[in-house]
Amino acid sequence: MCIFCKIVKGEIPNQTILEDENFLAFNDINPTRKIHVLIIPKEHYDSFDVVPSNIMADMTTFIQKVAAKLDIKQSGYRLITNIGDHGGQEVHHLHFHLIGGEPVGRLVR
């Protein structure tokens, strides 16, 4: 079972940002920015290439809700997914990185 499926089942704790019956958004354990959230479907899909289009449409709406909850629309953010080993995908469970804010470790003056 993949690590994200274990998180969905509650076997691994997480810092949940937003959740509904189909999707989960939680803080990345190794953030690259002040805001670094992972957004996953609760059902396992290996990657973007295999997820049904209706699930992807619902996931897009969920991602918009996460961005609204984090109140980062005006400051800007990145939404990234990696597909396949050569595309940088490390966990083979569809997920998006929502990344915003200052880099981790950077002093704000």
Score class of each variant (00 low, 15 high):
residue 2 C to P: 09
residue 2 C to D: 14
residue 4 F to D: 04
residue 5 C to D: 13
residue 6 K to W: 03
residue 6 K to S: 09
residue 9 K to R: 11
residue 9 K to F: 02
residue 9 K to Q: 11
residue 10 G to Q: 08
residue 11 E to N: 13
residue 12 I to S: 07
residue 12 I to H: 06
residue 13 P to G: 10
residue 13 P to Y: 05
residue 14 N to D: 08
residue 15 Q to V: 06
residue 17 I to E: 05
residue 18 L to V: 02
residue 18 L to D: 08
residue 19 E to H: 05
residue 21 E to R: 14
residue 23 F to D: 10
residue 23 F to I: 10
residue 24 L to A: 05
residue 27 N to H: 08
residue 29 I to T: 07
residue 30 N to T: 10
residue 31 P to T: 03
residue 35 I to M: 11
residue 37 V to M: 01
residue 38 L to N: 00
residue 41 P to E: 12
residue 42 K to E: 09
residue 43 E to C: 12
residue 49 D to K: 15
residue 49 D to R: 14
residue 50 V to E: 15
residue 50 V to D: 14
residue 50 V to F: 13
residue 53 S to A: 15
residue 53 S to W: 09
residue 55 I to N: 11
residue 56 M to W: 09
residue 57 A to F: 09
residue 57 A to V: 11
residue 58 D to I: 05
residue 59 M to R: 09
residue 60 T to N: 11
residue 62 F to P: 09
residue 63 I to N: 10
residue 63 I to S: 15
residue 64 Q to G: 10
residue 67 A to T: 11
residue 68 A to E: 15
residue 68 A to L: 13
residue 69 K to H: 13
residue 70 L to P: 04
residue 72 I to K: 02
residue 73 K to W: 10
residue 74 Q to H: 07
residue 74 Q to A: 12
residue 76 G to T: 03
residue 76 G to Q: 05
residue 79 L to D: 00
residue 79 L to F: 01
residue 80 I to V: 15
residue 87 G to E: 06
residue 87 G to P: 02
residue 89 Q to D: 01
residue 89 Q to C: 02
residue 91 V to I: 00
residue 91 V to D: 01
residue 92 H to P: 00
residue 96 F to Q: 01
residue 97 H to S: 03
residue 97 H to Q: 05
residue 99 I to V: 12
residue 100 G to M: 09
residue 100 G to E: 02
residue 101 G to C: 09
residue 105 G to F: 12
residue 105 G to L: 11
residue 106 R to P: 03
residue 107 L to E: 14
residue 108 V to I: 11
residue 108 V to T: 06
